[in-house]
Amino acid sequence: MQVRNDVLFHALHADGLLMLSNCGDAGSARIAAAAGSKALATSSAAVAWSHGFADGSTLPRELLMASVKAILRVSSLPLTVDAEDGYSADPAEAAALVGELIDAGVVGINIEDGGGTPALLAEKIRAIRAVADARGVNLFINARTDVYLRGVDASLRVQEVLARAALYEAAGASGLFVPGITSEDDIAAVVKATPLPLNVMLREGVPAPARLAQLGARRLSAGSAISEAMFGCVDALTRQFLDSGKVAAGPYAPMGYSALNRLMTQ
């Protein structure tokens, strides 16, 4: 009997460290799946940049949905989508968007407090959980808190993260995402004090995956790092071609036309 993707995605947070490379389109999703990813995740920045938009809830919703449906067309792996702030300050509107994502086949989301209040994110989480429950889907709601990205006093960060974690857990969150957390002591303290699986984002100073697993973190996201590297490569090669009429890939070997075509037809 096949395990439902929502059940599988929750199970992937129960033990060990789930590695999510974060894709921006169907092509990068195919690459992530072929490389052995157990699940797929979007990066809001990667999706926005792939369409020529800035990150930060500027991407038109129809393009977000088109990207999600394209990814689901090429892979049956569990998919979690970075929904940023729900693309709205209105909890009902944010929940309606997530309802569309669930209907498309998504089994997880990230939703963030960003520059808003913790109380507002809690309201959004409650509304989203109600929408998911009405559809019979155990949606993995990964509550992202930007405490470490918003200049909170370093001595108060863990305390503030845990206060928000308790609020989000009570509202129906499934996991806690703390981008910017890098200290082993801070990671261990958060893991110890909340039952929500902790998601850490790749950043300078983040412990290696094996060490994160030892500390009790349950998820490591690449965030926008792969997309940033890819666009940096595209920029350098474009300038190289315009200057010299040549394209020399440098340290990374090109996949090649035939290999890429085979991958995209699987």
Rank of each mutant, 00 (worst) to 15 (best):
A170Y: 04
G250P: 08
G99V: 06
A127F: 10
T238W: 13
L263E: 07
L202R: 08
V191S: 06
A225F: 12
S44C: 11
V74R: 00
Q214A: 13
R239A: 15
D25E: 10
I31A: 12
V234E: 10
R129C: 03
E112R: 11
G16L: 10
A66K: 09
G205I: 11
T80D: 07
V158L: 01
V107Q: 01
E204I: 15
A188W: 07
S67Y: 01
S28C: 09
L121K: 04
C23D: 00
G175P: 01
V206C: 15
A34I: 06
Y148E: 03
H51V: 09
K69I: 00
N110Y: 03
A83R: 02
F140G: 00
V131Y: 00
S88I: 03
P60C: 10
A26Q: 06
V137G: 02
G223Q: 06
R219N: 11
V131S: 11
A70V: 12
R30W: 01
N261M: 11
A66R: 12
L260T: 13
G16F: 02
A95S: 11
I141K: 03
E184N: 10
V190S: 04
T80G: 01
A225K: 10
L156E: 15
D146Y: 13
Q266E: 09
P60K: 03
Y252S: 04
G16Q: 07
L77F: 02
L12Y: 09
R135I: 04
S155T: 15
H10I: 02
Y257A: 14
V190M: 03
L120C: 14
L120V: 11
N142C: 11
S155G: 14
G86E: 08
E169A: 12
E204G: 14
A29M: 01
L20E: 02
P78H: 00
L63T: 06
V81H: 02
V178F: 13
P118C: 08
G36E: 00
A39C: 03
S224I: 01
F53E: 12
F9D: 01
H13R: 05
V107G: 01
A48R: 05
V147Q: 10
L8D: 06
G108S: 07
E62Y: 09
K124S: 06
R239Q: 14
V158H: 02
L59I: 09
M201F: 12
R218D: 09
R4P: 01
P179V: 11
F177C: 06
V137T: 13
I111D: 09
E84G: 04
A96S: 14
Q214L: 14
E84I: 06
D235H: 13
R164A: 03
V206F: 14
R239H: 08
G172M: 13
T194P: 02
L121C: 04
V47I: 15
A208L: 11
I226N: 04
A188C: 10
